[in-house]
Design a protein around this nucleic acid. Sequence first.
DNA 1: GAGTGGTCTAGACCACAAG
DNA 2: TTGTGGTCTAGACCACTCA
Lengths: 239, 239
Amino acid sequence: MQQSPKYELIANELRKRITTGKYQPNELIPDQVALAEEFGVSRMTIKKAIDGLAMEGLLYTRRGDGTYVMGDISLKIEQNSPAEEHLGLTASFEEGRVTSKIIQFDIRFPSESLQKHLKLEKNEPIFEILRLRLLDGRPYVLEHTYMPQKLMPGLDEAVLMNSIYAYLKNTVNLKLSGAYRRIHALFADELDVKYLECKEGDPVLEVEQVSWLDDGTPFEYSFSRNKYDARSYNVLDIG
Amino acid sequence: MQQSPKYELIANELRKRITTGKYQPNELIPDQVALAEEFGVSRMTIKKAIDGLAMEGLLYTRRGDGTYVMGDISLKIEQNSPAEEHLGLTASFEEGRVTSKIIQFDIRFPSESLQKHLKLEKNEPIFEILRLRLLDGRPYVLEHTYMPQKLMPGLDEAVLMNSIYAYLKNTVNLKLSGAYRRIHALFADELDVKYLECKEGDPVLEVEQVSWLDDGTPFEYSFSRNKYDARSYNVLDIG
DNA sequence: GAGTGGTCTAGACCACAAG
DNA sequence: TTGTGGTCTAGACCACTCA
């Protein structure tokens, strides 16, 4: 294969046609046979491209009828704040908008709870990191992060100033594959008051997360806490 | 086709083998060629079944290596409260555990905001519903729901006592296809205090949602509010 | 009935992991 | 080098929508 599979290249082209308005919302796009002919591929390859775009919420298909461009979803348009990704904050905003202040950076042995979350023995050290992420210089989210040292022995403060995810991908060459999240509302604690410009008793949105690699190894357990009016967590649920 | 496609039947069988422990966590399952032979189907059909299970987080594949059963994810096991679904509460719990108290059931013209969310003209009436859902008799979630009358002219209080989703599916024969959600933390309001056993100033977890049918028509705009310690919202994010 | 998307096949070649 | 999963094909049949 060239680099990306055909179905992905085709999906990119179709996505462009949708976003540029060549294919209009709630209108039919050409049928799969026609597209297969246009792109010079088999119909199954077109189907796979369309399936991907349907998963993204850009298209929907009706058996016996055709494939339509999804009409705009009001909530999605209103505030397109990105929170689906497990790619970290840095990837969600333009270069330079997100900065980090390291409040704590320690290495220690894991508690029982962390041993369970990260599948570690009690003698395998973890990094404990507390970072305040700032958006355009204003406090945005307070991140408590725990990661096994053995997976990333070279982690240091220079890395923490930027994106941990970029470091994992580019330097350590770890492939991350998934995350499980639990979202709560709770009271601000002392740290939130200190760093997030919260008042005592303010609600806080907390995203608790376990992330793992493509072989199923957990590599991160974290809490991200936001002031109640600073951010929402958005989910698109198809099918 | 019989009823379900082959890949779905095969996925069900594989799921059973995983949950019963016949396939053990972090272990290889038979390769696709072997499975294709066992089930008497082509390899692509096996692949499709495996892809589905990978999306569910039960399997993961490594090119050049094999297909493994996903190891347990700590957060997922700890509290398996169901919140991914847009199928409503009734489907998430056993028969009889969830009951409803109708606090308000009106029909009126939509506000500008609702016109936008539900893609309605100002002269197209909506149902406005306020329901308290109880779990085992205890207040659980307060649901503010807005739905276009034209899509479900026969909606009445008897339906609201049970599941709106079951009514849409079985009686009106509408197929729901997706939802977009925004999750916030905020202060309890007067209604929360009155119905959810909240104190004033307590944090509340709110799920704001727009749902639509398979033709892209929005059919529901809702807020669901939970007391901060009553529930979390869980998300599995693969790939 | 005509035309659409959904499924499925039998085979092929490629990319990749591991010995 | 061997064996795995990922992609892709050319064609077939089916289920469904709509006129």
